[in-house]
Design a protein around this nucleic acid. Structure first.
Lengths: 343, 343
DNA sequence: CTGAAAGCGCTTACAG
DNA sequence: CTGAAAGCGCTTACAG
């Protein structure tokens, strides 16, 4: 691979001059600029960004901290947005191979040793000390769904509260009054916010909040199924169930059908995420849409802005959510409603 | 961030000595080794791998060339394997932000400018000139599903032929004789090999190959649906349909049901991939399992072996596939079979 | 407008 | 066993 010295020799100039034409400095005569450019052409020279990074203390690299599996549809779509935003930015994505099980491992040291210019974090809780160090070290960071921010750290998430509240309102308008909620594990911001949305939705509809209608699971298919089983065992079975993820909604539907009920005829179900399969699944799922792809794009845009402008104030952004009505919600079955059917 | 100079000063030794203890050279006295180590501890020193890479001409970085979306379940699972294999290897993953629409973009220059030690390629055809350059340049490379290899390039894929052949045999044993195949776009090795498997399966079962039973689509849900529509319009409707992907199988099933037939009572359907949703979908999908995760792991293991041992011969590997029988295949419905039902 | 020199943070013969 | 020096491929004041 040709180096800047080879180009300098070929063009008959100094390496400083070659550097200047590579970096588009104005103080180079047209004549030598041409000489240098044809030498570059001839030798198929490509500047070594690693060497450049060493002196500029930059790497044109963005790290991702991602312990959630790539097979998680949220992660996949997020990465798709990130990738797209990065495509023509001059930055490349590096996935830092984390080893949180190793007590000597430090994420921030890893970032520094790789010299990443910024990082996007998804799926790590605020209790992770590596994350806190990251914020304290003022390395440009964008958090997705983790409610953490600082001088050089922004935060971006979906409008979780309104998302679930809309789901409640939707069921209410279909006549449902016994509306249950299958939450994700509480603690992380998104889980808490969605639960807030459930309560807020009930409040707006004038429905009292009843803890028997709250179940908690781990967002999974099996978790949703188990939670649904408990709800079905209630004397006052809910007629509508809102789930904190599409996956747990699929599990709930599966369980409901296993018990001989049908969706949406007997029980309506709403998911959260609007992953690709929500549309494919039969019956197709009514769900709260998150603009995950957009969140990925924005995260990178903000991150690059922070990197390239030290005084840029990192944003705290809530991306709107919206309800996608499909086939798993329907008017409440009068057989199950409190009030007797109108004649 | 402390540099090697700071450590040297703190420990009262030369930077050469510090370097030696960092790299576990034996010719350092126990006493100075201790002094250096406590200086490292004190300053929280972490060697800069970028600087090290500049002199060693290595980066401890593996590039991926991946133009297929992350939301593709195959990609997601492959990355999961790659990630796992990388986790404690000391290598990090970098996704090179490709710009194949820019005529001046060269993937290989990008690799060199980033100084990646090796690359794994998925989803690019052999006709891509960037890919050919990669092989010619003898940069350590593992191709997934692209039948390309060279002095420093290996190739790993699923046993596509046997996979589809097993599917044919499975249907045959259920009594099916009119077995159609919905191929993916022909040209790329996997598509061709799976078609070979279809023909081979028919041959082994003594069923003549009939072109009317061959459809081609783009592996998608809609593609599968359209192809199925054409098969359903045939005078001699197939009783079994094998699809080159799970997604197109889902589409085919959807279309079959739309036409008032049911799966598997009227028509059996087999997919290919065994993605996560094959199990979740209702009816759950009989499909050919690819060990994609394992392929990801192996790809990295072989790649690192190549990187670290210049004389390592890059492997050409076929990972076994197996048939997972679920709910979309059943004995042929006698109503549709050629031979009259036995009394 | 051009180039010599120092330096980014490391490693590696080589001399002592 | 230890360290001075050169060098990896760049950039950046600075002098001319």
């Amino acid at each position: 691979m040709a180096s800047i010295h080879d180009v300098a020799k070929e063009a008959g100039v100094s390496v400083a001059t070659v550097s200047k034409v590579i970096n588009d400095y104005p103080d180079v005569s047209e004549k030598t600029r041409k000489k240098v450019n044809s030498a570059i052409e001839l030798l198929k020279y490509q500047p070594n960004v690693v060497a450049r990074g060493l002196v500029k203390r930059r790497s044109w690299t963005v790290g991702v901290l991602l312990t959630v599996p790539f097979t998680n549809p949220f992660v996949a779509e997020l990465l798709e947005g990130i990738k797209t935003a990065l495509e023509n930015s001059g930055y490349d994505l590096v996935r830092l191979s984390t080893r949180f099980d190793d007590p000597t491992y430090s994420f921030i040291k890893h970032c520094r040793s790789r010299n990443v210019d910024g990082v996007v974090v998804f799926g790590e809780g605020r209790e992770n000390t590596s994350i806190q160090e990251l914020v304290a070290a003022e390395i440009p960071t964008m958090f997705i769904d983790t409610d953490l921010f600082g001088k050089r750290a922004g935060y971006i998430t979906t409008d979780n509260v309104n998302g679930v509240a809309m789901a409640v309102k939707h069921l209410y308008e279909l006549g449902h009054r016994k509306i249950a909620y299958i939450s994700g594990t509480l603690g992380p911001a998104v889980a808490n916010l969605r639960l807030d949305g459930y309560k807020e939705g009930l409040r707006l509809c004038g429905i009292p909040y009843a803890t028997i209608y709250l179940e908690v699971c781990d967002y999974s298919f099996d978790g949703g199924a188990k939670a649904a089983r408990r709800l079905l065992a209630l004397r006052e079975q809910p007629t509508g169930i809102i789930c904190a993820s599409d996956m747990s909604a699929f599990g709930a539907i599966h369980e409901i059908e296993k018990h001989g009920f049908s969706v949406p005829e007997d029980i309506s179900v709403v998911g959260f995420d609007n992953t690709y399969y929500a549309e494919v699944f039969k019956p197709s799922l009514t769900t709260v849409n998150q603009n995950i792809y957009t969140i990925g794009i924005r995260a990178i845009e903000y991150l690059i802005a922070m990197i390239e402008n030290p005084s840029y104030t990192p944003p705290v952004v809530t991306e709107p959510s919206n309800l996608i009505v499909r086939q798993t919600t329907a008017p409440v079955n009068e057989m199950y409603s409190e009030a007797p059917a109108q004649p």
